[in-house]
């Protein structure tokens, strides 16, 4: 396992570059994001004596809660900030962002770059709204206001260029099509706040949700009366869920119980592995897109972990 210390900053989210397989970004906040600065770390894995090295650091006035790499420029990345701002960074340029949008009225908790229409991204905020952006445009393209509580997660479909999902404190997941102004589907997925969702990368109608109710649920959008699978085991709220980019049956989840868990949805005993080396809430997780079996986590213990759990090695996964 490779460890990196984000000294003085608590990890909120991380993402592998969609262009360069050993490059990873981590969005962090001082003082657990309650008050103080934010910092975006750009790092290269497998470089330097510790196996991971900083390429660039960007400091912000307020905590950073999420980041998402541009899908059409390998040097650009967007961040979500506690002061409601969204910033676009060019990692070839030091110190300041190349764009700064201020439309959200409260903490921005999620940003996600469109995987197919690569000139847009979406953001979700504690002001209950979702906004659609084009990096070239000085104002948001659209605003979606249906959730009646904080929006914690906004994630594009890997199959439909106009469709994304949102997870909210109002206990629903909504599916949106940017061709129409209203949501196209609402799922009462949990009876508590929903902090995260993700799409199955191989089955276009299947999503996963993670909630404060400690459970991870898998849903088929064609019939949402009941979940397909409910994964139990986490002892506290689940902060983020991610579907493997390599296997349709592999999910990871991170939780306030300080663990990252790996699940195989095809097995009766779904729990594959528990990563319990963090000593605080684990908030961020991402799979390496191009090195199958590599996964990264970040936590409030100011540490990033880069792992290769045996259960994820290509030979071990069905």
């Amino acid at each position: 396992m490779i460890k990196f210390h984000t000294k003085g900053y608590n990890g909120y989210s991380l993402q592998y570059s969609p262009f360069i397989e050993n490059k990873i970004a981590c969005a962090t906040a001082a003082n657990f994001g309650l008050v103080g600065n934010g910092r975006l770390f750009i790092m290269n894995i497998g470089v330097g004596p510790n196996g991971i090295d900083i390429e660039r650091i960007f400091d912000t006035q307020d905590g950073l809660f999420d980041c998402s790499w541009s899908e059409n420029n390998e040097n650009q990345i967007v961040t979500a900030s506690g002061d409601g701002s969204i910033k676009l960074w060019d990692i070839t340029l030091p110190e300041f962002p190349i764009r700064n949008w201020r439309e959200h009225g409260r903490e921005v908790f999620s940003v996600h770059w469109n995987l197919i229409k690569k000139d847009s991204f979406v953001s979700g905020s504690w002001d209950n709204s979702i906004r659609l952006w084009n990096p070239e445009s000085l104002e948001s393209i659209s605003k979606y206001e249906e959730h009646n509580n904080c929006v914690y997660s906004t994630i594009w479909s890997p199959y439909n260029p106009d469709v994304f999902g949102s997870a909210s404190g109002d206990q629903t997941v909504k599916i949106w099509d940017t061709k129409v102004p209203r949501s196209i589907q609402t799922i009462r997925a949990h009876s508590n706040e929903i902090l995260s969702l993700d799409w199955n990368k191989y089955q276009e109608n299947v999503i996963v949700t993670g909630s404060v109710d400690h459970t991870v649920k898998v849903w088929d959008l064609r019939n949402t009366n009941y979940e397909i699978v409910c994964l139990r085991g986490h002892e506290y709220a689940i902060r983020r869920v991610k579907w493997s980019p390599h296997k349709s049956n592999i999910i990871s989840s991170v939780s306030y119980d300080m663990t990252m868990r790996l699940w195989d949805t095809m097995l009766v005993n779904s729990l594959l592995d528990v990563h319990d080396m963090h000593t605080e809430f684990v908030l961020g997780v991402d799979f390496n897109l191009y090195i199958e079996g590599e996964i990264a986590t970040c936590a409030w213990d100011e540490n990033v972990h880069i792992l290769r759990p045996p259960c994820l090695l290509p030979a071990n996964v069905l």
Binding site: P18, N72, E74, K201, Y202, P245, L289, Y290, E292
Partner: peptide, 8 residues
Amino acid sequence: LEQRKKPW
């Protein structure tokens, strides 16, 4: 860099 295809 050219855009890379995702595993899926």
